[in-house]
Each structure stands twice: as structure tokens, then as C-alpha cells.
Design a protein around this nucleic acid. Structure first.
Lengths: 336, 336
DNA sequence: GATCGGGTTTACAACGTTGTACATCGATCA
DNA sequence: TGATCGATGTACAACGTTGTAAACCCGATC
């Protein structure tokens, strides 16, 4: 058992509250008393019991971070950043993995575990409207990503239309004309897939390239095997693409695997670009051209907005658009 | 504010304790009362306040997982598994990133944040003896990995000597004779590096291959750039290796990058193997031969051992050796 | 008809903390 | 000299929960 205020008080011969006052640097404690209490604290190795504090304050000091899976590099890197930022402000982060399943996501936001949280940063995959219904109505919430109707909660995004457009423009600028897209998803509207698809189409339109529906491939999820599979199908087309834009880097790495093991040269035969700038893409061969979202900024903004809400800020839902930039690597421009 | 027992009690016209009894399925509550309380609970949407419970019980329901960095795939995959197992038993996991720095690790185990934890799973990089001194002496602890003198706490490992030996044997069986090792670390004794180096040497000795010190390269840390850099140096040797065993997969992926961008063929010119079986290695080109530790088993064992301690088990420190197996892929055996 | 016993319910205290209100004290001021 | 003031310290209650012990009620027992 660790020492409590009571133990310290007894040892120092003062009241419990006085010890509490010392611990909290309350102004009106005489130097003598303070010294006596301090030494008692040291002697007993007292550390305040955070659980009791949290009960008293009606807060837990813990925010939740709900994301699909930690072994997806983008989310791992994001989690790292979020934890880092939160830690700087003495907040702890509890990670919940939703597996991208709607029921798990709902449970996360409404289950008893959510009860302990002072706020939640949610990076949903399947978020629909019914979702927010289950919410503790007083739980501060920040949403990450695009799959949300604006106006439901604070959220942090990147401009996915622009990101996809930038990537596609880059491929066009290289002289490619048959540009495929991997990562379409039919079921979800207003999802990431839709906006990235829009950006892709806009870039094609700008360049006066007629869109070919056969070049737009769906992906069940956004993992490497999905990209590999989609690429296999693209290679069977009578007229295969000369460039592929994948809606995230994992899909691109999967596609890359298929290309290389099929003897297709990248980027000579097919140029390849993704989104996320995960670390793997910096060490693949060829290295992967990608759109790099500013993850630090995203994490920083998410935590900041959330803590503002936790601290009582009220106001209409806010949206922050974090920056992104094109990082051209070997998979499109070859070896410099 | 969410409803408390008191609110429910008032609505149902019973005492607070009776509501508590209903919530906890206490035996002696009449059917009528129970029904009345239940409906009051539903009406108010009552959910127990876990913070208060934890205070009452002297527990937080939260275990810590301290690891170097989440963006290292091995740790991300491990974290995923640990969180999954803990969740099944209704425990929450709080992740702490130590960055592999000793001071951060020490802070993790002794700082105020540790105060809230019921137990800690620690995967240290620089753990030394002074480390455990700062520990809350009553904090249940499970250590992961090898960098620990046995006898200090429960810990879960794989047989790193055997793992390294298996990988090296595999390279030898392919007919390679100049086998390099990347990942040596001088400063730490009894660390992962040392045991893996030992396994490597044992396998060489078995095969009657004279060890060449020039083929053993250190790595500052175990990230991709370290592997890439070490490989660069190996390639400058008058007699470069025909195989490389890296002490983890990230080093191997870094080395692979260097090899391929130098025009060296893998595995024809140089065969390559790592340890960890991270997902990247299944989609690199060539795919990466590796030693796969049973991460599920590790996570399962760590959580189980920890919760046993939390639940009062006392006894001498235990050690569990989790399984591992060789996964031969293209980087050694080429394309099947 | 008083006693017993078991089911059922309740009041109270406690986990460790801090806000509020009040008590105490010495010094200052009219 | 007595009132006032600020500095310092304290007792108490409360956050929401549950263990303990005791109270209550009813039917069965003697």
C-alpha cells in the first residue's frame, strides 16, 4: 500500500487538508509547516492517488484514441504522435481498436469503458449516422478523417480531394495517360474513398483524359493484400495501365509487390503513387511516391481541440484541414 | 452529467445500496424491486462510474504497456495483440512510449502515471539494474525481451539464441559461407544483441565456418536506416558476404534496400534473413525470410502472468519461453 | 403468542482527495 | 484598548461506489 494524505498528516502532525495544501502549492502555508510536511512526504514516498483526484474532479485525465488497427502503419504512426502530444500536457491515452467494425466502434463510444474517458479521438472506418446516437452526449469528441458529415463534431482532415488530385496530376505530368485507381468503396458515401476518387477524376478531367471505369478498382479494406489483388486484376486487362494511384500506401505496397513479381518495371512500365507516407514506403525498392499528410499537425490539432472541449469550450463544430504535400520518389520518377 | 446510483435510487424509491445490489446481481433482491430498479436504470441510462469503483476497490482496471516506439512494426503488432487479450478480460491498456531512453523508462515505472496502473508490461531497451530501483515495489510487472537479468520479475521471451541459430543454419544450409550479422551492440550486456550474436556464432561453429569479425556489424538502433548503413559498409569489404543475418526485420529491410539499389541480387548474390516476422516482410520484393516469434502467445502469456500477479498471486519470478519458427521466403530461397 | 430464521432492505462508513466554511492567531489600526 | 484584518490552519462534506452490520418483515416453529 502506498501512503495517503492521512499517513503524511499524522507523521507531520498536521491536518490532512494542510498536507493537501502543501501538495497543491496553496499560498497560505507557513514555511515551517511546509518544510515539515515536505519531509514527511519524502519520508513516506507519498504520491497523490490519481484515481481519488479524478473522482473528486469528475475527470479521469484519460482520453481515448479509437482506431481500426494498430498494425496499420498509418495508424501506428498517428497513435505515436497523439500519445506524444497528449503526454506533453500530462494526459494519458487509452487505445481502443475497433477493427473497423461498426459494432465495435459503437461499443467504444457508448460502452462502460467510454465512461472513464474525458474525451475521445475517433478515427472511424464505417461511421454512419446511427453511430453518434449511442454517444454519451457529453463526451467531447474529435473525429479524424473524412467519413463524417460535417457538423456533427469537431474534426480534423486533410483535403483529400486535393491530395488525390495532386497525386494524379503528378502521374499525368510524367506523361502517363492510362492511370488506374485502387481503393474505391461503394458502400460508404462521403467516405475517404469517395473524395479521393473525386480528386482523381478531377485531375483526369483537367488534363482532358477520358476516365475509363475499367481502371477504377475497389478494395475491400486498405491492406497490402487488397492492393496486390487489385493489381493482379489490372494486369489482366487487355490494355493495362501505365500508372496506378492507390488510395493509401499499403494498397500501393501491395500493388508494388504484384508488379515486381510479375516482372513489370516500376516506374518504367507502370508508375505508382499512394497516400500516407508511411515509413515502409521510404525503404521499399523502388521507394514509394506518396502524399504526406502532416501527421504531427493532425495529432496536435486533434488533441488541442479535444482538450479545449474538455476544458469547457463550447461552440459549433470546428473543422481543421491539415496540410499535405507530394513526396516524389522512385516509384514515379525513378532513380535520381 | 450522467446519472449516479443516487439518482436511480431516488427514482426507484429504494436505497442507494439496493440499486448497487441490483447492478451487481446480488442474490437477495426481490423480483419486484429488481424490476423497478432495472426500469429506473434504463430510464436514466445509468452506467456505473468506474473511477469511483476503482477508488473503492483500490484498483484502476488499467495496465500499462511501455515500449520504445509504436511506429516500429514489431511493437505495433505486439501492442495490438496485448490490447486484444487485455480487452477480452475487460482490462484497459495505457501505452507509454519510452523512446528507448533510460530516463523515460525510469519515469514510466516510477512517475505519477504509474501510480494509476494496476500492473505494467515493460519492453525495455536499455533496462539496467538501477532501473528497477525506482519501481513502486508493489507494482506487478512483466518484462518482455531478453535485456533483463533473470530473477527480477516475471518475464516472457523467445529463445533468442536458438532463433538466431536457426536463421543462420538456414543460410548455411543454402550453401552460404560468408555470412554477415547486422545488429551487434557493445554497450549492453545480456541484451538481445548479445544472445542473437551468440546463436549466430554457434551456428557458424557447428558448420565449421571460421567467424570473421569484419562481418559482424553494429547498429545504433534497430531501424531501417541502421540496416541500410551497415549494409553499405559490408558492400565495401574486399570480400563481401554472400548472406546477411539481421537481428531484426527492420534492419533487414534497410539492408535489402541498400542491396537492391546497389544492383546486388537477392538471394542470388546475397541471401538475407531477419527476425520478427513483421508484415512488411511479407510484401517486400523479394519477400523476407525471418524468424517468426509467436506474438499472440507472447501477448497472451504477458497479460495472463500480469493479471495473476494483480490478483494476488505471489511466488518467485517466472519465465515463459514463447515459440518461434523459421519462415523461409524469397530473400533466401528465391521464388518457389 | 413469543421466538426464531431467513430473505430483503437499509444506514453508515470508507476508499483518497479537495472545496467551503469556519476557527485561530498575531499584528495592525482607529 | 478593542476592533479589524490577513495569514494560517482545521473540520466537514462531498465525489460515486460497495462491504459491513444491523434493521425489518414475514412465515414457520415451539
Amino acid at each position: 500500500m502506498s501512503a495517503s494524505l492521512k499517513d503524511v498528516a499524522k507523521l507531520a502532525g498536521v491536518s490532512v487538508k494542510t498536507v493537501s495544501n502543501v501538495v497543491n502549492d496553496y499560498r497560505y502555508v507557513s514555511a515551517a509547516t511546509r518544510a515539515r510536511v515536505r519531509s514527511a512526504i519524502d519520508e513516506l514516498g507519498y504520491q497523490p492517488n490519481l484515481t481519488a483526484r479524478h473522482l473528486r474532479y469528475g475527470r479521469s485525465g484519460i482520453i481515448g484514441l479509437a482506431l481500426p488497427e494498430l498494425d496499420i502503419p498509418y495508424f501506428a504512426e498517428l497513435a505515436k504522435a497523439v500519445i506524444g502530444v497528449a503526454e506533453q500536457q500530462s494526459w494519458s491515452v487509452l487505445i481502443d481498436q475497433t477493427d473497423g467494425r461498426g459494432d465495435r466502434e459503437r461499443q467504444t463510444v457508448s460502452g462502460p469503458r467510454a465512461q472513464t474517458l474525458d474525451g475521445l479521438i475517433l478515427s472511424p472506418l464505417t461511421l454512419d449516422a446511427s453511430y453518434l446516437a449511442g454517444l454519451r452526449e457529453d463526451l467531447p469528441l474529435v473525429l479524424l478523417g473524412e467519413r463524417v458529415r460535417p457538423g456533427t463534431a469537431d474534426h480534423v482532415v486533410i483535403d483529400n480531394v486535393a491530395a488525390a488530385r495532386d497525386a494524379t496530376r503528378h502521374l499525368i505530368a510524367l506523361g502517363r495517360r492510362r492511370i488506374a485507381a485502387i481503393g474505391d468503396q461503394h458502400n460508404s458515401d462521403a467516405g475517404t474513398a469517395e473524395v479521393r476518387l473525386r480528386g482523381y477524376r478531377e485531375a483526369l478531367a483537367e488534363a482532358g483524359i477520358a476516365p475509363d471505369p475499367a481502371l477504377v478498382l475497389p478494395a475491400m479494406s486498405y491492406h497490402r493484400p487488397d492492393g496486390a489483388e487489385a493489381m493482379r486484376r489490372l494486369l489482366t486487362l487487355p490494355e493495362p495501365p501505365d500508372a496506378v494511384f492507390c488510395f493509401n500506401d499499403l494498397l500501393a505496397l501491395g500493388a508494388l509487390r504484384t508488379l515486381l513479381s510479375s516482372g513489370v518495371r516500376v516506374p518504367q512500365d507502370v508508375a505508382l503513387a499512394g497516400i500516407d507516407d508511411i515509413q515502409d514506403g521510404r525503404f521499399s525498392t523502388p521507394t514509394l511516391t506518396t502524399i504526406a499528410p502532416d501527421k504531427e499537425q493532425i495529432a496536435e490539432a486533434a488533441v488541442t481541440m479535444l482538450l479545449e472541449r474538455v476544458n469547457g469550450y463550447v461552440g459549433p463544430p470546428r473543422e481543421l484541414v491539415a496540410g499535405h504535400r507530394l513526396v516524389a520518389r522512385e516509384s514515379t520518377v525513378g532513380r535520381g
